[in-house]
Nucleic acid binder design. Structure first.
Lengths: 340, 340
DNA sequence: TTGTATGCGTTATCAA
DNA sequence: TTGATAACGCATACAA
């Protein structure tokens, strides 16, 4: 049988409560007893029973994490940061995959709240009314990740997808392209805000062509990137650059251009979003908006841990920003030199 | 306050035990009471407290899943299958990331066992002695995934990495390449078995050149694929094909060839492993060994669910096999035609 | 600083 | 088929 708290207490010559305190509030136990208790715990290999702890404390050591996809490299990176930062803290991570479905998200929040979690990390700022209500009345700390926005439930760490797309579009125009297009898949809220950013900047420059915006609700993939590029070339052959909603699409668009003998970046500029590792390795290297995914995950978990450890940590919103990584795929100068 | 089992019992005019039974063994409750209880449960919105259930039943509804990486697309796919198949079953998935560390894996197994899990899904067949001991004496069902092998702990679903690499190598030789190389990163056990498969077949054909085997313990990436290809070309310029240990490396190798003006597949054949989605979309499309990752995850969870639901389900090992997806990157014929 | 009494919400066991 | 009783292993509240 596994040793229980009473076994430790007996062996150490103290009460069960003192052992319990030694584990959770060592400051409130005298040095002598603390040492004795710790020795016994080591000797017996005692570990508290999580279920009993949860039942008695009316609160678990579970942190629920809800992401819309676990195969999308973007969220895989964020999760990796979360797991990394959770290591050694004692918090147990319960991962939920909402598959981009608000209903499934609500189901997950409900299921997680039944576990009396210590905290919840949830992606995005577009929760349904029902989900929002659940979260607002929840008695645990909450971190929204991926995005920043007004009216956080509690804490927030992310960046502005709108501004990211604006900056990328600005770069494309600065690079000398004049008929930019946009490729989008999935059409989730963040995608839509990126599209808005593109429209803002291209429109302000008088270079917006709605026929150059190719969007589909289908899930994103490299293959789809190629198909969307083909569609774009068919509908708007004048296009001389594309901002892709993500890096998979950008890579697929590059391959499609190569298959058609379209020179990138001379005849077609290509820009991705997220800056996955492969962007820099491609040929030509692909320009992309770098987002700080690992750091976002780490910080979300760190913020939560602080909020749960120290009392009275206020709600804060952290904007991690982004960075346009300019690479060969949008450097049109070679063509300009040829033309001059 | 959340309704408890006693609230339901009172409202339905039965004892708490009968409510408990109605939930878990409805067959043992009379039709009349069952209906009444169910109505009350709906009305009150009763949900059992997981912690109390675990404490009383000495067994949780948790299924621990241990993978060596969560950013690697291969495991992301497997996890996706697991989550998909777990949906609606009531099992809670606790995910652990061992980061390819046997020690971390042992730590995770220990932590999971403390939760009195209903089952454990663990990647690979190379558990340390300590981990093996823990798992053998565990009182829950276990599924090993990713690979098949002798001496399973319990259930198994995977495929032979050795045979996968053998088949790929055979294809490369059949395609007419005579000086094949191998690119490997990470060097985990599965990588090593793939390398063994390559050596087997290339050696038997008298076409093995040890100088053409480039391996590094570094984590895999597209960038690294390019670097390894550069290394290979420096050390063994005669190389006319590469089997890459995974698709990231293959893509990187392709880009590096393109940067150097080396024609793929005419001057260099490239074959990947796993057949991630992007392989078919690349230019040229890249040959790869398709593995059934989503299905593997689904099946692992399904097997576990069956074993936990129905009594006396025996241990079974399922080999899901693989498929060499032959694509342009290893179709040398064009060159052969030119030469003839 | 330490200990006692009590409750957390459910299920196992056994008897009816 | 149903129910009474006793755990399950720990933490909260309070007292000493």
């Amino acid at each position: 049988m596994r040793p229980k708290i009473m076994d430790v207490a007996r062996e150490a010559g103290v009460s069960a409560m003192t052992v319990s305190r030694a584990l959770r509030e060592p400051d409130k136990v005298s040095k002598a007893k603390l040492e004795r208790i710790r020795a016994v715990i080591d000797k017996l290999g005692y570990t508290p029973d999580p279920a009993a702890q949860t039942l008695a404390a009316r609160r678990s050591n579970i942190i629920g994490v809800i992401v819309p996809s676990i195969t999308n490299a973007v969220f895989a990176d964020v999760m990796s940061g979360i797991y990394e930062s959770a290591e050694g803290t004692g918090w147990q991570i319960l991962l939920g995959n909402s598959r981009y479905s608000p209903l499934e998200e609500e189901r997950l929040v409900t299921a997680f709240l039944h576990q009396k979690p210590a905290g919840i990390i949830i992606s995005g700022i577009d929760q349904s009314d029902a989900t929002s209500k659940l979260l607002r009345s929840a008695s645990c700390r909450i971190v929204q990740i991926m995005e920043t926005g007004p009216e956080p439930f509690d804490m927030m760490v992310g960046f502005s997808h709108l501004e990211g797309a604006r900056a990328a579009t600005r770069h494309i125009l600065d690079a000398g392209y004049t008929r930019p297009g946009f490729l989008a898949a999935r059409l989730d809220p963040r995608t839509q805000r990126r599209l808005q950013g593109f429209r803002d900047v291209a429109g302000a420059a008088g270079m917006l062509g709605e026929q150059r915006i190719i969007a589909t609700p289908k899930p994103s993939s490299v293959t789809l990137g190629g198909l969307l590029m083909a569609d774009l070339l068919a509908k708007a052959p004048e296009t001389d650059a594309v901002l892709c909603n993500n890096d998979d699409l950008a890579l697929g668009a590059l391959f499609e251009c190569q298959r058609r003998g379209i020179n990138v970046p001379a005849q077609m500029g290509i820009c991705g979003f997220n800056d996955l590792e492969m962007m820099a390795a491609a040929n030509p290297a692909i320009t992309s908006v770098r987002t700080h995914r690992l750091q976002m995950g780490r910080m979300a978990m760190t913020m939560l841990n602080e909020a749960l450890t120290k009392p009275e940590i206020p709600a804060t919103t952290t904007d991690l920003g982004f960075e346009v990584m300019i690479r060969a795929s949008t450097l049109r100068q070679p063509l300009a030199e040829i033309q001059s």
